[in-house]
Write a protein that binds this DNA or RNA. Structure first.
Lengths: 338, 338
DNA sequence: CCATCTCGTGGAAGCGCTTCCACTGGGTGT
DNA sequence: ACACCCAGTGGAAGCGCTTCCACGAGATGG
């Protein structure tokens, strides 16, 4: 293992000078710099990031907390994060939250200093207690698709998205519109689904359409669960003519239920999803597109800027636009139906 | 920031003792241990992993190199890696290889000591030059879905998978079977595709079916490229009655081309994919299933074992089984066709 | 010509941890 | 009774780096 001392000896200079060259200090004569750089190349020297980190007090690690297994959308956001970090001095350290039973476990581990210099949280809530600890420790935090008091957040306007989807269905003549989403009290603490539901309720109310309690179903974010919930909806005495699901995965479950119940889509049932993941395009699913990649990218950039400047990220709420993508799972309400 | 010295003072013991407690050394009297643990809790002390890493000579970081943007299958493998690392002392550091133009760039960065303690490489080739450097640096390496001289590898039997797919089509009566895969000289250096192609060629040969050069098409691993290649195949004077694509993404491209050319699947064209990603099930794609999750899991476990034992991973070639999943994109060759 | 400044440089101190060595005090064997 | 050993402990050294302080050599000004 070659160290800075070896380079110094080889170049015939002091350690300090080598360090200055490594860190681009202007306080080095050009001739000296060249000599040192030649030695670095000759010895194939690589600085030890651990030692560097210890000395500097930061390890150039960006922690990303992500519910990897539960939401397909998280992957696309992660891609954005990866893209933002390319070329930066920071390494991406991945912390998965697999189980909803210990959602705060990663924070406990991370609030210890130097586990990561900054934290990006995708879709998960952060207990206020941990927000404080992270703030005390001086670790900047950015939330994507989530919200917490006193933290910089990047979100898309979920309520507007919920409105968009519902307006679309109402515009097609539907009045019996069901909703499938996650339980507001879900174990992970995901909240986006509730805001989408709010948009749904608002639009119905504005059009004077009563929100039937039996038309609003909640369950874990899972294809088969959604399928079951949709099957229940379709078996109702007065079944819905349209379903708005708060995610594409759930919408695809609804599609499967429709097939199972012998309903053709969109002739006998319209379905709208949310997220616009890869699958949506293949399935021809009408859905609300949100900029998943961009949200991850922006979140990471905000964090990097904060880290570079030494200032905590601006306490803004960055809102990304959503947009309805009309495909082939929605259609005008057939006359005489419902 | 509270350090080990603070804990020592608070507990009225020496630094060494605190360190021994932290590291579970038996050389501490129970009473002393309890006292120290109480102080740790009272002060909310968290060891600094950077300092620990510097002292120990390893940072408890497991580097994963993954072509994140190009292959959907990589994500599923990554999930396996994440699962294997849960509960271990190692953090997952993600290195993306976005561009094929500098495929060895991450290795340059990583062969420097302590960037990561071990390296897991997904689907990418490792230049032999870097294999040597990593070996010299004592960094264990495991490859998943790739191969290199002198490195532990986890792979599935791609040739057998290629055979499986082709046998299936031949068994359905097809003789005009085309292949769509990646160029053997592709910039990233992916090799799995070539082994699948070998299996395809072998089976055709065994059945006395000539391999028409015009039936074998190569292009980057991309849906739209595959779609174009498939469109070319279908426009041939004697078009194929079946297409075996070396990945699901490419098979889905072929499906799109079939729709574009007015061919119904599977009546007028059979299509087989490879990987069995999420999309395959939704699309009803017949495909070769390979244990993506398990491959990542196993690779990570091998690496962790090597790290824990201090021995390099056994130089085995771990081969995972593949299996044909028959869905709705393949059917008996219609009489009189071709 | 000397005091003063500036630039470039060497190297010690210090980051927080582990580990090794030295030391103590109570057993143990004879 | 004495030598010996060993469990338990304190603390110095050292991991490889950055940074600060000190210092020498020219340059500058009076």
């Amino acid at each position: 293992m070659v160290t800075i001392a070896d380079v110094a000896k080889h170049a015939g200079v002091g350690l300090g000078t080598v360090s200055r060259v490594l860190n681009g200090s202007p306080q080095v004569r050009d001739a000296t710099r060249a000599k040192v750089q030649a030695s670095i190349a000759a010895l194939d020297y690589h600085p030890n990031p651990l030692a560097r980190g210890l000395s500097l007090g930061r390890g150039h690690r960006l922690g990303v907390i992500v519910p990897f297994f539960t939401h397909a959308s998280a992957v696309e956001r992660l891609r954005g994060v990866v893209a933002a970090l390319a070329g930066s001095a920071y390494d991406l350290v991945l912390f998965n939250v697999a189980s909803p039973f210990h959602p705060d476990e990663p924070y406990h581990a991370l609030t210890g200093p130097h586990r990561a210099d900054g934290l990006l949280v995708l879709s998960l809530p952060v207990p206020s207690h941990d927000v404080e600890r992270l703030a005390e420790a001086g670790i900047p935090v950015v939330l994507v698709d989530s919200w917490a008091e006193g933290v910089t957040v990047v979100m898309s306007d979920d309520r507007a998205g919920g409105r968009l989807a519902t307006e679309h269905l109402v515009g097609l003549g539907h009045r019996e519109i069901a909703f499938i989403g996650e339980d507001p009290g879900n174990a992970f603490g995901f909240t986006a689904t509730s805001r989408r539901e709010e948009g749904y309720r608002e639009v119905l109310r504005e059009h004077g359409i009563p929100v039937r309690p039996s038309f609003v179903r909640h369950g874990p974010h899972d294809h088969d669960v959604a399928r079951r919930l949709a099957a229940e909806l379709l078996a109702l005495p007065v079944p819905p003519t349209a379903i708005f699901a708060s995610s594409d995965v759930q919408a695809l479950g609804a599609l499967a239920a429709a097939t199972g119940a012998g309903r053709t889509v969109p002739a006998q049932l319209s379905v709208v999803g949310y997220d616009d993941i890869d699958l949506a395009a293949y399935a021809g699913l009408t859905t609300v597109h949100q900029p998943l990649f961009d949200s991850g990218y922006l979140g990471a950039r905000l964090l990097l800027d904060a880290l570079d400047s030494g200032r905590p990220p601006a306490l803004d709420r960055h809102e990304l636009p959503v947009e309805l993508v009309t495909r082939t799972t929605t259609a005008m309400l057939a006359r005489g139906a419902a």
